[in-house]
């Protein structure tokens, strides 16, 4: 399970861009995570050693941050925001609908390995409440009634296999909307939207 050549190249690029090696640890862990969506212990050790750092503090980092996963996750990590502005607009009902549709295990993973359901805290997209993060993208506003359809669209979009863990190419901005799956990555169009009464 050695690091892939692309990951090694990316870590070298990160290291060269930053003034100190220790600062390269967090961005390098993120780069390594994009290989399989999560960070096996061995990967964390490989990254730390590549940077000439002690692996033990690197494990501590990986367990601290919510965007780093030290357990296997599905193709999509669904981080449903539960913070107050989303709560006031029905985020608990959305979470329940997702739970009902996926029947996740105690780690939040669906049986088909497609989804991992996580608790999210405010993602800075409250005008689209209730919303969730789907890998790199923001999706909202969500409605409990359309959750099965939204998940079905995501399943279909994943048919092409994992794209280094990303649904959208980050260079292109948000992917096209489809039915109830509406992306809110770029906040620009927001201020003129009106919420449902």
């Amino acid at each position: 399970m050695a690091l892939e050549p692309e990951t090694i190249a990316e870590i070298e690029r990160i290291r060269a861009a930053l003034p100190e090696a220790r600062s390269a640890l967090l961005p390098s862990l993120k780069a390594a995570q994009s290989e399989r969506g999560w960070l096996p212990q061995e990967t964390i050790k490989d990254v730390a050693e590549m940077l000439g750092l002690d692996p033990n503090p690197a494990y501590m980092l990986a367990t601290f941050y919510t965007m780093l996963h030290t357990e296997p996750v599905g193709h999509y990590v669904l981080e449903v925001c539960r913070s107050l502005p989303c709560y006031l607009r029905g985020s608990d009902q959305v979470t329940e609908a997702i739970r009902g549709a996926l029947q996740p295990d105690e780690h939040g993973n669906s049986v088909d390995g497609m989804f991992s359901l996580k608790i999210g805290e405010c993602l800075g997209d409250c005008p689209h409440a209730p919303m969730m993060r789907v890998n790199d993208d923001f999706v909202g506003p969500l409605a409990a009634e359309t959750i099965p359809e939204t998940l079905e669209i995501l399943r279909r979009r994943a048919a092409g296999g994992r794209v280094r863990g990303l649904m959208a190419d980050p260079a292109d901005g948000p992917p096209p909307n489809e039915g109830p799956l509406t992306f809110s990555n770029a906040i620009q169009s927001l201020p003129l939207a009106r919420v449902r009464e």
Partner: peptide, 27 residues
């Protein structure tokens, strides 16, 4: 100018935790 991306932790907004995060420590 470097853009340094965090990884999900509200405490990193506290200015000294933010510095710890850039230094590769637990924030």
């Amino acid at each position: 100018v470097f853009v340094y991306q965090g990884a999900g932790a509200y405490i990193c907004g506290e200015e000294t935790a933010l510095l710890e995060s850039i230094e590769g420590n637990r924030p």
